[in-house]
């Protein structure tokens, strides 16, 4: 059986020392090993940004696509091969700005894959502009007078858009994050995981210390029930989104592929492509 070391490759990440993304990478590698999959059974599909580089740093199949489009690529792949474990990942700009449409519809569509957002509340790769996750008033290169627009609330968004698995992690808490990702991989549907992954270079507000001070672990809330969507929404709102753990888990709603009419229970990629003359002639006759 593979260990987390088997999911390491020999590429040295070009992230800044101290970047939160290192721990997200480690958590994915541990979670994959813990759920008992082999490197070739995992595909990591990522967007563009500092975070998007992650697919190149894990020893697994990896696809570093275009900005904001990790989700549709991942969904196409999952449609082709439902036996693969597919993880889509990217930054907060990737998922909540340019790719927001795909995030919302990915949540609604509920394919069986895991989506990890490395949320640093800033644009890292393009050197420090505001992100839809930057709080109102946040000063960046592109918002010298402070951000005017309010920030996107990932958890509330997911909860109100048909999500079947909603979680949030903090990159320094690798133990909790690993457990969340494991549960996400095992969830039979779309797992939405937002991860606070601090950018040490451009975000001087939402720092490691800031999070340590402000985050509440759901495991510390007595009697928290992740199957109750209404309660989940209330808790998230009470804490202004600053919670970690599995927020909502719907184990009953079947995933897209189980619902799609007569969708192949085996991976489509294994199918014979020639339909044969008999079937073909039947189709031709329908036009006669």
């Amino acid at each position: 059986m593979a260990t987390f070391k088997d999911f390491r490759n020999n590429v040295k990440p070009n992230w800044c020392p101290g970047c939160g993304d290192f721990s997200v990478q480690a958590a994915i590698q541990r979670a994959a090993a813990n759920v008992g999959i082999e490197p070739h059974e995992l595909a990591v599909i990522s967007g563009i940004g500092c975070s998007g580089r992650i697919s190149g740093y894990i020893n697994s199949y990896g696809f570093h696509g275009i900005h904001g489009r990790a989700l549709p690529i991942a969904q196409g792949l999952k449609m082709a091969n439902r036996n693969l474990n597919v993880i889509a990942s990217g930054g907060d700009g990737d998922g909540f700005a340019i790719g927001m449409g795909h995030t919302i519809h990915g949540l609604r569509r509920n394919l069986d894959l895991t989506y990890i957002i490395m949320d640093n509340q800033i644009y890292g790769l393009t050197k420090g502009q505001t992100s839809p996750r930057s709080a109102a008033g946040f000063v960046t290169k592109s918002t010298p007078g402070g951000a005017i627009e309010p920030d996107v609330k990932p958890l509330e968004l997911a909860l109100s858009t048909g999500a079947t698995f909603v979680a949030q992690g903090f990159s320094t808490d690798i133990k909790e994050l690993t457990a969340i990702i494991e549960a996400g991989i095992q969830h039979k549907g779309f797992s939405f995981i937002n991860v606070f992954s601090p950018c040490v270079t451009y975000n001087k507000v939402n720092t490691y210390d800031w999070f340590k001070e402000n985050l509440t672990k759901l495991s510390d809330i007595e009697g928290y029930d992740p199957t109750n969507r209404e309660a989940a929404m209330n808790t998230v709102m009470q804490h202004d989104g600053l919670v970690t753990g599995i927020i909502y888990h719907d184990t009953e709603t079947p995933c897209y592929q189980s619902k799609a009419d007569r969708f192949d229970e085996q991976a489509l990629v294994g199918q014979e492509l020639m339909m044969g003359e008999t079937k073909f002639n039947e189709l031709v006759k329908e036009f006669m």
């Binding site: 599909i45 696809f63 696509g65 275009i66 489009r69 549709p72 690529i73 991942a74 969904q75 196409g76 792949l77 999952k78 449609m79 082709a80 091969n81 693969l84 489509l268 990629v269």
Partner: peptide, 9 residues
Amino acid sequence: TMAIGSNYG
């Protein structure tokens, strides 16, 4: 991009 993902698969 979905079509690309599927072809990749």
